[in-house]
């Protein structure tokens, strides 16, 4: 059996802390860049041109319809080979890239549904006043869509915190990777429970924050 959970945690907490920092960092990078890319994907998806929007929906369906772990393996082994222009990327960066691409697919749907959830009458009112399509989007629709989008983006970040655990498979130092580090010291079961506990606490705290944010945003209704 070896030492107990608490003993292991007290002895090795800096390892777990660094792992957690890695997890939060990778999830943040994935959602931040995923959001930038996701806006572009959302615009492509909402295009009136059928060919353009089909390309967008294929992108989203492939990334959402296949497991992230598979996407990571493909990125890890094939991106540098298949796309010579990207061969400067390290193995670590390839894995991060797959996190970003995966996140962009989810985020694009968050943007799309957030925009679609704004009442059509708002667009009609603005356009009937003679407001241009781009001003209508910037000044009327997006400010109202933000209320739908922000909590969903925060939830995407929470989901990503759990998803990044797969990156440990590729030796990226995030929370799950501490299991590998401690397994070398013949500590097999204790780290698993510590890691699970940390994930649970972090996601519960963040979820509570999101609920508080949703409450504040809905006050303006």
């Amino acid at each position: 059996m070896g030492p107990g959970i608490i003993e292991v945690f007290l002895q090795y907490w800096p390892l777990f802390l660094n792992g957690l920092i890695g997890t939060l960092k990778y999830a943040f990078i994935a959602v931040l860049f995923g959001s930038m890319l996701g806006i572009v994907v959302a615009i492509i998806n909402m295009s009136k041109n059928k060919i353009v929007s089909t390309i967008g929906s294929i992108y989203v369906n492939v990334l959402r319809g296949t497991p992230l772990l598979v996407q990571m393996y493909i990125a890890y082994f094939f991106i540098p080979m298949a796309v010579p222009a990207l061969s400067f990327l390290s193995k670590e960066q390839c894995v991060i890239l797959s996190l970003i691409l995966n996140s962009s697919a989810y985020v694009s749907e968050i943007f799309r549904s957030g925009i679609n959830a704004v009442d059509k009458g708002q667009t009609e009112a603005a356009r009937s006043l003679g407001m241009s399509a781009s001003h209508t989007m910037q000044k009327i629709i997006l400010p109202q869509a933000v209320k739908n989008i922000l909590p969903a983006l925060a939830n995407e970040y929470i989901a990503m915190i759990k998803e990044t655990s797969l990156a440990g498979t590729f030796m990226l130092y995030e929370l799950m990777y501490t299991r590998t580090l401690l397994a070398n010291k013949f500590l097999v079961w204790q780290p698993l429970f510590i890691i699970a506990g940390i994930y649970l606490v972090v996601t519960m705290v963040l979820s509570a924050l999101v609920r508080a944010m949703e409450k504040r945003l809905s006050v303006s209704d």
Partner: peptide, 29 residues
Amino acid sequence: DQHRQKIGMVFQLFNVFPHLTVLDNITIT
């Protein structure tokens, strides 16, 4: 858009802009 500026429209469900003050609803366009 120019023509529409000269054709005002009022809707059954008002369609005022909820994120803007009453004054900004009027002045934004």
